[in-house]
Design a protein around this nucleic acid. Structure first.
Length: 223
DNA sequence: TGCCAGGCCGGGT
DNA sequence: ACCCGGCATGGC
């Protein structure tokens, strides 16, 4: 079996198990980006509260959020933690967004995504995962997103080395899968769900839909 | 009750 | 090139 087919087979198993997870389905790009920043090292549940507060405060637009006082934003996003640094990161992104693209998402996403990725990484508060989440989930660019869940599930299943870097894990997927944003979107969501359900510190491998794959030697998966 | 959650930065080796 | 402390709230 080819490398590509093995990752697609994992995908198929998880996709049939979970169905279409529809991460960030109909929210506009701005809400996606706000969520990507607010969820840094934070439970999504708490992020939902913060975003709801921003919406109720009528601040879920680039123009209004940019004008809002830091103190007001801090109060609204408090539930998701790190509220001072995250307020600063939202404002810093907005400065970039207005200065470089005149607050146009179409302009921002029109360039080649590799160039946009480099620019996003220069924005204070946007690292690799946040940049890639913006590219994939807000811009529908074919960029595979990696997080702690992805790394843990992959290393538990012998797909990657436990101390592989972000770029190494990302390349592992992107070299073996077609460059398809819809596929990457669903795949990442599936990996996160599977890791949460079966791949915690006390794993539940017996009920994992990938159970038959667990514990196999690495060569079994990457050859 | 402590540990963890969809990271990132800055300063130190 | 890594390694670490700081950032902060809510859930189990």
């Amino acid at each position: 079996m080819t490398k590509k087919n093995k990752l697609l087979r994992i995908y198929k198993i998880l996709d049939e198990y979970y169905g279409d997870l529809k991460w960030w389905p109909a929210d506009g790009p701005f809400e996606v980006i706000v969520g990507a920043i607010l969820t840094q090292n934070t439970n999504w549940r708490n992020v939902e509260r913060a975003i709801d507060n921003l919406r109720l405060g009528n601040l879920l637009s680039p123009e209004r959020l940019r004008r809002a006082k830091d103190k007001r934003i801090e109060e609204l996003i408090k539930p998701c933690g790190y509220y001072r640094v995250k307020t600063r990161r939202l404002k810093t992104f907005l400065d970039f967004f207005f200065d470089e693209y005149e607050a146009s998402f179409e302009a921002m996403f029109s360039a080649a995504w590799g160039e946009l990725r480099k620019k996003l990484l220069m924005v204070k508060g946007i690292g690799e995962e946040t940049a890639d989440s913006i590219l994939l989930y807000a811009g529908q660019k074919p960029v595979f997103v990696v997080d702690q869940y992805t790394k843990r599930l992959c290393s538990r299943h012998g797909l990657i080395d436990g101390n592989a870097t972000y770029g190494e894990v990302q390349r592992f997927f992107m070299e073996r899968l077609p460059a398809d944003a819809a596929l990457y979107n669903q795949y990442h969501a599936l990996l996160v769900n599977a890791a949460k359900d079966f791949c915690k510190k006390t794993p539940r491998c017996s009920s994992c839909p990938l159970g038959k794959m667990a514990g196999r030697p690495k060569e079994d998966w990457t050859s």
